[in-house]
Design a protein around this nucleic acid. Structure first.
Lengths: 188, 188
DNA sequence: GTCTATAGGTGGATAGAC
DNA sequence: GTCTATCCACCTATAGAC
């Protein structure tokens, strides 16, 4: 794993910019100004912007998978796991931005082809994980829903992604908080 | 109402580009190439890009409001009204793009300040309309849910927006179709 | 690994002829 | 109302000194 400090600073800055201004809303100049180096130095770490964007999504995906594992090892109840999952999005909202994958999904028509498989994989991984939680929760009698676990997982993820979008645009965190409660209440 | 033909061509082209590539993913050059005029001619109709973007959202909002009225006058059942509402998003998905308001919401950090009130208004108008449908549907015994009608309206809209995002990114219309079924089934 | 300098292209926008 | 021509700022990217 590459742990170069400057490289990480670049990725951190780029991620924050991408999540707030959009896939085409930031430049090497923005990153350079934010972390106090020159544009050319960024090109040393990421020759092209596509390289940077690809790494950005890969890192984001990997980070989320680590979070999912962390949830699994720290809480065992299905309701608690869903709450913890939703909490990850609240953290994003608190930074006044949306999910990086949601952002890239919104600009999919401008995305380099090489990036699309990772984006699709991101959503599939999350639906898969949520499906497992839904299935286990129903078996244990902790969750109650009709239809397939996968359909519930899809609906849950879609609502969180869309809710993040709306709450962030409206500058209203309460909207998202209430949404989380509504979604969980529907599963009881 | 301004019905200049060239002006409308510009708006149509700009909207399609904005909905597929993102708020910062298209230029006057793209529009000019698509409709066969020069960049300078576009500036005659929309002096600045902010003017164009503002008009784009206003037109989109007005168009949606007209659709909502059309739904009200053509079907009276709450379930049918929600189905027709969801169908509007399916039409968007069929054009391989997401909701213009969802797109602008995703790039809210790059949005000109003057545009934000219209964006917030868009979501509020939709939640308000959906809340009316939810309320009426519950009173009539057509819909069944716990919690407030407004919370249900918010969750319904959020799921459609997020579902559109995911289905479009994954290039999988079936995901969205199933989502619509799941959402409606939850309300019965 | 970071810098200066610069290339080559495109962004939005304007002036003025027709 | 559309055009040609042009401006300047900014974009990604590269070459080469330190």
């Amino acid at each position: 794993m590459n742990t170069n400090p400057t490289r990480d600073l670049i990725l951190d800055s780029a991620q924050a910019l991408a999540q707030t201004r959009g896939f085409n809303g930031f430049s090497y100049a923005d990153i350079a100004a934010e972390i106090g180096i020159r544009k050319a130095s960024i090109h040393h770490h990421f020759p092209t912007k596509h390289d940077l964007e690809t790494e950005l999504l890969e890192r984001y995906r990997a980070g989320f998978i680590a979070e999912l594992k962390s949830i699994e090892s720290s809480v065992s109840g299905s309701v608690e796991r869903l709450q913890r999952y939703a909490q990850l999005y609240t953290n994003t909202l608190n930074s006044h931005c949306i999910c990086l994958a949601g952002m890239m999904a919104s600009d999919v028509g401008a995305l380099p082809e090489q990036l699309k498989p990772s984006l699709v994989a991101f959503f599939k991984e999350h639906v898969e994980w949520l499906t497992k939680v839904m299935t286990a929760g129903k078996s244990a009698g902790e969750l109650n829903f009709t239809g397939s676990a996968q359909a519930q997982a899809n609906a849950f993820l879609a609502a969180l992604q869309g809710g993040l979008l709306m709450a962030n645009a409206m500058g209203d965190e309460a909207v998202f908080k209430k949404l989380k409660q509504t979604l969980l209440a529907q599963l009881k």
